[in-house]
């Protein structure tokens, strides 16, 4: 069992503020999981705060097919079968059991 990645998401807040006091080993444990989560939260905040109101009558270009997000196979880019080949891109993480018998 790997013991390298023990920092869970809620610990991120502690590590963020304790950064200057962390030992090299503790900093090493600031793994990709944590960095990803912190980065995502910051990006989310920026996106919420940074958007300006664009009146509907000025949205002609952003409302065209190809500019909107759509579940439609015609208007969107989604290819359902590819989540089988790229398991990390599926939305739910997938409920695949046959791949690993003793994952825990």
């Amino acid at each position: 069992m790997s013991t390298e990645r023990k920092i869970e998401f809620p610990a991120g807040r502690i590590v963020l503020f304790a950064g200057p006091y962390m030992t090299p080993k503790m900093k090493h444990n600031l793994d990709t999981n944590l960095r990803l989560n912190v980065g995502l939260l910051l990006a989310a905040v920026l996106l919420f705060a940074g958007c300006a109101h664009v009146p509907v009558y000025e949205q002609e270009l952003v409302s065209k097919v190809g500019m909107t997000r759509s579940d439609s196979m015609v208007e969107g880019d989604r290819i359902n079968l590819l989540s089988q080949i790229e398991p990390g891109s599926s939305v739910s993480g997938g409920a695949v059991a046959a791949g690993c018998t003793a994952c825990r």
């Binding site: 995502l40 939260l41 990006a43 989310a44 996106l47 919420f48 940074g50 958007c51 300006a52 664009v54 000025e58 949205q59 002609e60 270009l61 952003v62 500019m67 909107t68 997000r69």
Partner: peptide, 15 residues
């Protein structure tokens, strides 16, 4: 979140 950031830019962000 989905935002029309300008007349030409639409963004989408999901966690």
């Amino acid at each position: 979140t989905e935002n029309v950031l300008s007349k030409r830019v639409r963004s989408f962000f999901e966690v």
